[in-house]
């Protein structure tokens, strides 16, 4: 770690920061992050897809390409179900973005592709027995397998009840499907419907609020809407003060400034 920066005065850090902003705004390459003049032909995966909203700090300019916006695990159909379902869990409203525009489905996709999806650091050794509910998850399936099964079953349930796939349902109908899973009204032999819903819900909050480096919380808008300033090196100046709004900073901001 570069210790020298910590010794800089707040003013000096502010100067560094605005210099950084200048570099970002003018589109100069900076740590491989901003590609000069790159245009936002971002998510061409389907015509209906909305491009990622431009960073408000760069109003009037096209957002740089976000190469993080591709799929590592889901197929398109699975991705669309996750995008619709998480949007119902954490919907856009007149003031604030929802799960879809925050990139939550990309976040979940990327997580399932890695260690978390493989339950890499969980105890997955046999024997497997059905336990008491106080004993927690005792299944042999990994998270990625649970998602595959859960998404398929959501679609099956939608077809049975409404004769349409999940993504074609109205918002209210999608809520009904989600509620049927949440309450375990849907009985599945392989996985717990309620357990799957819990993963979907916790994945939604993780995707909305984790550092943007993981693919969600686009442009830190998840943090911005709740007054969370993200990665800040010090709150000494405001800790004993009344509520203070602070423009969020990300881990990327931290990396490029050190």
């Amino acid at each position: 770690m570069d210790r020298s920066d910590k010794k800089k005065s707040p003013e000096q850090r502010a100067v560094d920061r605005s210099r950084r902003k200048f570099l970002v705004n003018t589109g100069y390459a900076l740590g491989g992050i901003v590609v000069g003049g790159a245009l936002g032909t971002l998510i061409g995966r389907k015509p209906a897809a909305k491009p990622a909203p431009a960073n408000p700090r760069e109003a009037g300019q096209a957002a740089p390409a976000n190469y993080n916006r591709a799929l590592m695990f889901f197929n398109q159909e699975q991705f669309r179900i996750v995008e619709s379902a998480t949007e119902r869990i954490f919907p856009e409203d007149e003031n604030n973005p929802g799960a879809k525009s925050l990139g939550v489905a990309f976040f979940i996709d990327h997580q399932l592709a890695g260690e978390w999806g493989f339950n890499g650091r969980d105890y997955m050794s046999p024997p497997f027995y059905t336990g008491e509910k106080e004993q927690g998850y005792q299944g042999r399936l990994k998270r990625r397998e649970i998602f595959e099964i859960g998404l398929r079953e959501m679609d099956n349930f939608s077809m049975t009840r409404y004769e349409k796939s999940f993504v074609e349902l109205t918002g209210e109908q999608q809520d009904e499907v989600l509620k049927a899973f949440e309450s375990d009204e849907v009985k599945l032999t392989t996985i717990s419907a309620g357990g799957f819903f819990k993963m979907l819900r916790s994945g939604t909050l993780e995707g909305a609020y984790s550092d943007p480096l993981y693919g969600g919380n686009l442009d830190m808008n998840g943090w911005r809407m709740r007054g969370y300033p993200g990665n800040q090196m010090s709150f000494t100046a405001i800790i004993d003060k009344e509520f203070t709004e602070i423009e969020p900073a990300s881990l990327q901001d931290h990396l490029v400034s050190h």
């Binding site: 339950n119 650091r121 969980d122 105890y123 997955m124 927690g136």
Partner: peptide, 25 residues
């Protein structure tokens, strides 16, 4: 600690079969 290598098992009382804590909680 990486639970895939080592965890604990838990039961509420001696009448129940203890099962591994497969994930953190």
């Amino acid at each position: 600690q990486d639970l895939s290598k080592e965890t604990i098992t838990f039961r509420s009382n001696e009448k129940i079969r203890a099962l591994p804590m497969r994930q953190y909680g």
